[in-house]
């Protein structure tokens, strides 16, 4: 079993980690580095609880080998807030009551952040489609969709003020 030494950036900080070939990014984050905000709901690419940003794009971290992330930049849910100030998607999902058990929430927030990055004015249909890989058993999704739309609007007004 070959170990690989990889260097990557996680939430803005460099990490050097020794990982066996078969270790997924999700395993590395949770078990090696204790970024436990990212969740394991299926380990099969289906539920989206493990979603993180890889070089700015959302991925299922259970469907990527850690070794494939050499040199990459990862953002997990722990990296969304800056200096204690919540990301607009985090604040909006609280305000709209889009969190219940909270297990899907980290993945939902990452998908939402990525969506707004690539499409600053998503329609409700576009939001729903972007969330199709984030299963939520509690909320029924409506409040999550509302929250993301609101977050996009808030971000825009924030940007306008700057």
């Amino acid at each position: 079993m070959a170990n690989h030494r990889i260097t990557l950036k996680i939430n803005g900080e460099y990490e050097q980690v020794d990982v066996p070939s078969q270790m997924t990014l999700l395993q590395m984050l949770r078990d090696k580095l204790a970024f436990t905000g990212t969740k394991n709901g299926c380990n099969a690419g289906e539920c989206g609880a493990c979603t993180v940003l890889l070089n700015g794009e959302p991925v299922n971290s259970c469907m990527i080998l850690a070794v494939e992330c050499q040199g990459a930049e990862i953002v997990t849910v722990e990296g969304l807030a800056q200096d204690g100030v919540l990301d607009p998607v985090q604040q909006a999902i609280i305000d709209h009551g889009g969190v219940q058990c909270g297990f899907c929430t980290p993945g939902v927030l990452i998908s939402a952040r990525a969506l707004i990055n690539r499409n600053p004015h998503p329609t409700p249909d576009e939001i729903s489609e972007a969330l199709v890989g984030n299963l939520c058993r509690c909320t029924g999704y409506l409040r999550i969709v509302d929250a993301i739309q609101d977050a996009a609007a808030r971000q825009e007004s924030l940007a306008a003020r700057l």
């Binding site: 690419g45 989206g48 979603t51 890889l54 794009e57 959302p58 991925v59 299922n60 469907m63 990527i64 998908s111 990525a114 969506l115 489609e129 972007a130 199709v132 890989g133 984030n134």
Partner: peptide, 9 residues
């Protein structure tokens, strides 16, 4: 196909 995040890979 699948979801946005799966299609990233």
């Amino acid at each position: 196909v699948a979801s946005y995040q799966l299609r990233t890979r």
